[in-house]
Nucleic acid binder design. Structure first.
Lengths: 344, 344
DNA sequence: AGACGGTGGTGACACGTGTCAGTTACGTGT
DNA sequence: ACACGTAACTGACACGTGTCACCACCGTCT
């Protein structure tokens, strides 16, 4: 066990054939024993011999060969985004992973970094996953969906701000977030609302609908007291925030919805440093209901987002895998409600 | 193209045999053409016919069958942690992924959620990765390393606080972080240092060495002015922080090193709410040099950690894959230096 | 004595691919 | 006229696994 720790590199990887030879049985028997196939009866002494042989050789089955033979796998592909993901998102992702594993799926995150949308889909298809669950950003075209389905994927599910032709869609309508924020500000009597739009590329898939949601809420707000909406581009760094804050007084705004809590924190700090009173002079509201919001002074108002649970997602995947020809579902989810704290 | 969008489920997945049949050539020719095998000459007209046939059928090669035949893959397995990862870590992970892909490796994140260490290693080994790069928490035993190498993994590399027998180790000595923080506080004249130890399980792999580093720096600090170290357990939520802050005066401490910036933020806020003056009454220092530290008032002192770049890691992986029998390296990295701001 | 049924196991094929060794067809040199 | 080289392609095997159909053996019943 402790000898020859080094040149194990040239030792061939043990296969079920090696196990069979060592146990003095056929390869078929080995397969039956190690997979606990109930339809075939193997005597207990033989079972033990096989198990011991496998143990001694350190035999580990070859997943690729297995799924090649089986004609299918239980692999769920989870394309990873290349955008900087927030804490809310990464917690959700972990939850989904757990739930899928509980249903006996093999979850694989696979990055498509640097590839085009269709090239990425092709690369995913090579792995022959039984399901593809694309979270957040799309990066999936109708053509990509066809390629995946053609390669045997039973379920292609997108969870994001918009739907993709051919795929099951869990539409998270980000506009609801903007609407909730705007409604909250209007209710508090604000009438000139700035909307921070992140300068970072990749986030616009989220930020644009959120902005649209603000506009919608404002226009529906009733004509009794018309309000104004002003988009403001800002990057996630101190200089950009300071620049925006310095110009604040000239903008004539009395409120700002800052995309999410992290941007809100950054901007609020810059505003305070520039001598702008929050919430007196300007109300600030973020989104995502992160812990940090409660730590700020004034405490940050935010929009809490109700995401589906990991288990719900996993069960949807499982349902679609079992019945791929079911109707293409389109669920609208994402309930959002504002939480008023001290900053608004 | 737009017809039969539904019952594509029963259509068999096209293989290279189908392509060959459609193009009127042998399967071997298809393989040569699609892989651009330079050693074999195929006429240009034939090449085109094959390519067109593949395109028409939507042929995508089967990665499993390919690597089965080849006897090896270029897959790098990146076990994902189940601990809540910080922003520093997740940025680093993305960087590594990029760099590996640039070297033509297929990066796969694979979670071992809910499995024991050795069961997880076995599950990884089934995928027959050419390399395993375990970041952060270990979750890898010497036995697990043997299983992986036995299954054909050329490189097993751990990057974490401690090394694992048999694997190449990039040791990030977390003690350096604690030492830097303590040295900084001592230099500023503090003599009674509290050390926040997260209550969250899974983080103790980091927090324990950091605490040890504090102790080391204090004991080496010279006997001219002996200092005291006091471990303090705290969870990452407001109640826990408030509880600790309420008892603060009784502890007789004049400084605290709070594991990382996020815990420091939480504690500092609680201390301020409890009327403890920072830094007058108590100096606070965090770690990881996150952006949020600069946004706090007083600005948070921190310990900046110098991580290896993604490219360095990727090149190490590549080197070990090419020469697996090279010496088991043990790199000590992680330079850490304190950044004094206003909170200490 | 021969048919019968159950126990315990095996031989052989298929999955989709890459690649080596051959095999045509054809022009060329002596 | 015949060997020879070369361009262009193909037949067949191997990779490691799961599973179906089949087989040998042995005790039991009529």
């Amino acid at each position: 066990m402790s000898q020859t720790p080094k040149h194990s590199a040239d030792a061939p990887v043990p296969t079920s054939t090696d196990v069979a030879r060592l146990a003095g049985v056929s390869r078929a028997t080995v397969s039956y024993v190690l997979n606990d196939t109930s339809a075939v009866r193997i005597s207990e002494p033989t079972r033990r011999r096989v198990r011991e042989a496998a143990e001694e050789l350190g035999y580990v089955p070859h997943a690729a060969a297995r799924s090649l033979r089986a004609g299918h796998s239980r692999m769920v592909l989870l394309p990873t985004a290349h955008v900087p993901v927030g804490p809310l998102y990464s917690r959700f992702l972990n939850e989904v992973q757990w739930a899928l594993r509980a249903l006996d799926y093999t979850v694989v995150q696979y990055g498509s970094l640097g590839l085009g949308a269709d090239e990425a889909a092709r690369a995913w298809a090579e792995l022959r996953p039984v399901a593809v669950l694309s979270l957040g950003e799309i990066g999936l075209t109708p053509h990509g969906v066809r390629v995946l389905k053609r390669s045997g994927a039973k379920a292609v599910i997108t969870l994001g701000p918009q739907r993709v032709e051919g795929a099951h869609a869990l539409v998270m309508d980000q506009r609801a977030v903007g609407s909730a924020a705007a409604a909250h500000l209007l209710e508090r009597g604000r009438r000139a609302i700035g909307v921070v739009v992140p300068a970072e590329p990749g986030l616009d898939l989220f930020s644009r609908p959120r902005l649209a949601g603000v506009r919608k809420a404002v226009s529906e707000g009733g004509a009794d007291q018309p309000a104004r909406v002003e988009p403001l581009t800002m990057a996630y760094d101190e200089e950009s925030a300071a620049r925006l804050a310095a110009a604040w007084r000239g903008l004539g705004l009395d409120a700002v919805y800052a995309y999410n809590d992290e941007y809100a924190q950054l901007l609020m700090r810059a505003l305070q440093d520039a001598g702008v009173d929050v919430p007196g002079e300007c109300a600030v509201v973020g989104a995502d209901d992160l812990l940090l919001g409660k730590l700020l002074r004034p405490r940050l108002s935010t929009v809490h987002i109700e995401l589906p649970t990991g288990r719900e997602i996993a069960e949807l995947v499982d349902r679609v895998v079992r019945d791929p020809d079911g109707d293409v579902e389109r669920h609208d989810l994402m309930a959002a409600h504002a939480i008023g704290r001290e900053s608004s």
